[in-house]
Design a protein around this nucleic acid. Structure first.
Lengths: 216, 216
DNA sequence: GGAGCTTCGTTAAAAAAATCACAATCTCAG
DNA sequence: CTGAGATTGTGATTTTTTTAACGAAGCTCC
């Protein structure tokens, strides 16, 4: 099929598929059917086939999908079959935790610069990286070939960090700060907000008990 | 309206509305129209009115929404107008960062227990909490009135942590481990996965440059 | 107190997404 | 080499979600 417009929801699910497929690969599975994969991901089998069809034909009729090949194909399709260099802005609790998080490197996202505007933090070495003044983002982004910025500042400093990153010519931002940020159209933003998820959870739990009460 | 079924997407947006409204409140705004709110959230004004209508009538025709009242109403609707007690399982880098994260308490999510299965960590005090053996989750969940579990273990230990939490009678789980977990139907799960967001970002950036190339 | 302006809540229409259903095609056994 | 069984890819259908349109309702100013 290889369609033009790909639903946002599809992309989101692709990441889930990768996660599950990698688990299957660890467990030694070589082939998986859309039905089996669907069960683990809690989606409809047709959904999976349709999602994959947006990117190409990866399956074998009568057989299913070869796990390793599918992982590779999906990663290629998403553009995560290569190394992405990132800069982290805001070396607080969360920032430090992310800098020490091995998984980033494992998944091809290399944090190659750590930035902060606090003079007491500048010069400190965290996880092998010297903390650099945020004002120097421009030169460093060029020098190190950074494409993605990770914001872990407090909310009130998120927009300033954004501005530095945008000015430096970054292409995408992963924002952990609990604040909306504004960027020019050509820059992509993704928000990671624990509280969104906690709110969802609280709502589901509250609703669940409400329904239970109604039924009783 | 006060409808039965509320779209998942609506709930997700509610969290965004709260975030933006709290920003507006900080800036001293007392009233906001659906149109103004929509612009900041990058959604359609009708969308906002419809989303809010699922929960009740919060606006005043000809005026808009009173910011503080709306925040309160939304929080009530979502069930986050109270304290939720949570337990964190997995005191690694990320776990420590979350334990030290003031924002949790601020938003009504109190982490009242820290658990780990590593004997070297048990007994250690992190952010005022003594790390307790994961096996003792059952007694502690009861004793402390914990309703939500936060998993920050490595992926291979996520299911075990889940089992302890489920057995302890937890109602919801926020899973930071990059692995799918299985739970009984009555337990809700939310996944926080940075890499899902990074994958989305990578895809958007890749696609963006592809389109640019096509157009050029 | 009422005309005019504004903005909500809600119904109707449009668009998008998910699901179904089945032809196409692959494997494998005999 | 053929037929049975399995499972994909995709067009058709259904469901859900989003957007548009408009009547109802409140404020302001005369």
């Amino acid at each position: 099929m290889k369609s033009e417009h790909i639903p946002r929801a599809t992309i989101q699910r692709m990441a889930v598929y990768i996660q599950v497929l990698e688990g299957l690969a660890r467990d030694g599975a070589t082939v998986v059917s859309s039905e089996a994969l669907a069960r683990t991901c809690s989606v409809n089998p047709s959904q999976i086939r349709k999602d994959l069809a947006y990117f190409g034909e990866f399956g074998v009729r009568g057989v299913g999908y070869y796990v390793q090949d599918l992982i590779t194909s999906i990663k290629q399709s998403l553009g995560v079959d290569r190394v992405w260099k990132t800069a982290l802005v805001g070396v607080g609790n969360l920032g430090r935790a992310l800098l020490n998080h091995r998984e980033f490197r494992l998944r091809g996202f290399h944090i190659v610069g750590a930035f902060d505007c606090d003079p007491f933090k500048i010069g400190e070495v965290v996880s092998g990286l010297e903390v650099i003044c945020s004002r120097r983002l421009g030169e460093k982004v060029d020098e190190l070939g950074i494409e993605i910025g990770i914001i872990t500042t407090p909310p009130e400093r998120a927009q300033r960090a954004t501005n530095y990153l945008v000015q430096a010519g970054i292409k995408g931002i992963l924002n952990f700060a609990p604040a909306r940020i504004t960027v020019p159209e050509e820059v992509s933003v993704e928000y990671v907000d624990f509280f969104h998820h906690l709110y969802n959870l609280a709502f589901k739990i509250t609703l669940g008990s409400q329904i239970a009460e109604d039924e009783a």
